[in-house]
Simulated scan of single mutants.
Amino acid sequence: MLSAQPNQKPGLFVPVAGLSLFALASGYLMSLIPLSLTYFDLSLDLAPWLASIFYLGLLLGAPCIAPIVSRIGHSKAFILFLNILLCSVVVMVLLPQSSVWLVSRLIAGLAVAGIFVVVESWLLMADTQKQRAKRLGLYMTALYGGTAIGQLAVDYLGTTGNLPYLVVIGLLAAASLPALLVKRGQPQSSEQHAIALSDLKTLSKPAIVGCLVSGLLLGPIYGLLPVYVSRDMGFAQQTGQFMALIIMGGMIVQPLVSYLSPRVEKSVLMTAFCLVGAAALLLLIQTSLVGLWLGFVLLGACAFALYPIAISLACDHLPSSQIVSATQIMLLSYSVGSVIGPVAASRFDDVEHGLPLYLAASFLVTVCYLSAHLLARSKARLPTAKA
């Protein structure tokens, strides 16, 4: 496996630059796929299944990444997974059939799992919690910033024809260039230890739940919200702008997450973001345009804050040699939620404001769990405090 030598810190340019270009393509693609279904004569009912099968690919791919990174290294693995994703998009354009798109999105999920694990483990190879929080904040800012800008392409480049997909393919090809051209600053080879099954119980349960709920939220936000905004809210021309506001909220909140994570108990922090997120959804069921803008920004901030807090919590007390394995487990948890989320949210289709209600319920159930966890832990500490 690959890790950093104690006296060498992996550089940031290659993963962040490549991730930013990948995020531009991914941001555009996530809204492009459900909105282009009618152009390719595919049913809109396919949208939740395309989202779920993509996250099924994440789920299946997460446990398989470490051996590949071990054999070929972070940089080559990053290039490999980007090109697999690129090929999946090419196939979708050439063969616009339901079965082909489902298989392509499954393969895309496998590839994106590799991209996330490679970049996250690359950036999390730092010596202290503070350094890891800063690097994770940079990672999330690049990811969400690129994704937000990519969402705007829906309004400017549209969702019909082959041009939008050609733009996505070009961005994915460009994302490989930093890793191809820059050879310095890559993680050096050293021993990387897997986390044994018996060690899983030592990982933070709130961290695992945080990643799970992040998937339950972001799966429907990526896969179903563009259709909800366009069809149910009646903002077809502004869909890209509203989606960009969500991602922009996720980007804006990352410096705050980086600042608060080392200073505030992370379970408390996740609880607070879940409460604000549930409140933000009330703004999506009213008619004020300013209220809608604020609601989308707050929703994005709260939904996208959970994963970095949770993964940071999971890695807080782990050595660098177990970071790749920990990120795999957290991605696995996120993927389970992402597979379930779009299908579960689609069950609310017959209810007025069904998708916002589903998202609010996910936030509030998480608040209940984290509050119960914090209460149980505080009670467990009482005898020690009295002693």
Rank of each mutant, 00 (worst) to 15 (best):
residue 3 S to D: 09
residue 4 A to H: 03
residue 11 G to H: 04
residue 12 L to T: 14
residue 17 A to F: 01
residue 19 L to V: 12
residue 19 L to Q: 11
residue 21 L to Q: 03
residue 23 A to V: 08
residue 25 A to R: 02
residue 27 G to A: 01
residue 35 L to C: 06
residue 36 S to Y: 03
residue 43 S to F: 12
residue 44 L to Q: 13
residue 45 D to N: 15
residue 47 A to Q: 07
residue 47 A to S: 14
residue 48 P to I: 10
residue 57 G to T: 08
residue 58 L to S: 07
residue 60 L to P: 10
residue 66 A to K: 13
residue 68 I to Q: 06
residue 73 G to N: 04
residue 73 G to V: 02
residue 75 S to Y: 02
residue 77 A to I: 02
residue 81 F to Q: 10
residue 81 F to A: 12
residue 81 F to R: 09
residue 81 F to I: 09
residue 87 C to A: 15
residue 89 V to P: 00
residue 93 V to P: 00
residue 101 W to I: 08
residue 115 I to Q: 12
residue 117 V to T: 12
residue 117 V to S: 06
residue 117 V to E: 09
residue 119 V to D: 06
residue 120 E to A: 10
residue 124 L to E: 04
residue 127 D to N: 15
residue 129 Q to K: 15
residue 130 K to H: 14
residue 134 K to G: 11
residue 136 L to I: 07
residue 143 L to R: 03
residue 146 G to T: 01
residue 148 A to G: 07
residue 150 G to A: 02
residue 150 G to N: 03
residue 155 D to T: 13
residue 158 G to A: 09
residue 170 G to H: 11
residue 171 L to Y: 11
residue 173 A to V: 08
residue 175 A to T: 02
residue 177 L to A: 14
residue 179 A to V: 07
residue 186 Q to D: 06
residue 189 S to H: 14
residue 192 Q to N: 11
residue 208 I to M: 11
residue 211 C to I: 03
residue 215 G to M: 03
residue 218 L to A: 13
residue 222 Y to P: 03
residue 226 P to T: 08
residue 229 V to W: 10
residue 235 F to V: 00
residue 239 T to Y: 05
residue 244 A to N: 05
residue 246 I to R: 05
residue 248 M to D: 05
residue 252 I to Y: 01
residue 261 S to V: 05
residue 270 M to P: 02
residue 275 L to V: 14
residue 279 A to D: 02
residue 281 L to W: 02
residue 287 T to H: 12
residue 289 L to E: 10
residue 289 L to R: 12
residue 298 L to V: 06
residue 299 L to M: 13
residue 303 A to F: 04
residue 307 Y to M: 11
residue 307 Y to Q: 10
residue 309 I to F: 04
residue 310 A to F: 00
residue 310 A to M: 08
residue 313 L to Q: 15
residue 315 C to H: 10
residue 321 S to P: 10
residue 327 T to A: 10
residue 331 L to F: 00
residue 337 G to C: 08
residue 342 P to Q: 07
residue 345 A to K: 03
residue 346 S to I: 05
residue 346 S to P: 01
residue 349 D to L: 15
residue 352 E to S: 14
residue 359 L to D: 03
residue 362 S to L: 12
residue 363 F to W: 04
residue 365 V to D: 04
residue 367 V to Q: 04
residue 368 C to Y: 08
residue 369 Y to C: 02
residue 374 L to M: 15
residue 375 L to G: 05
residue 376 A to N: 13
residue 377 R to I: 05
residue 377 R to C: 11
residue 379 K to C: 09
residue 380 A to P: 00
residue 380 A to S: 13
residue 382 L to M: 13
residue 382 L to Y: 09
residue 383 P to W: 09
residue 383 P to G: 06
residue 386 K to M: 14
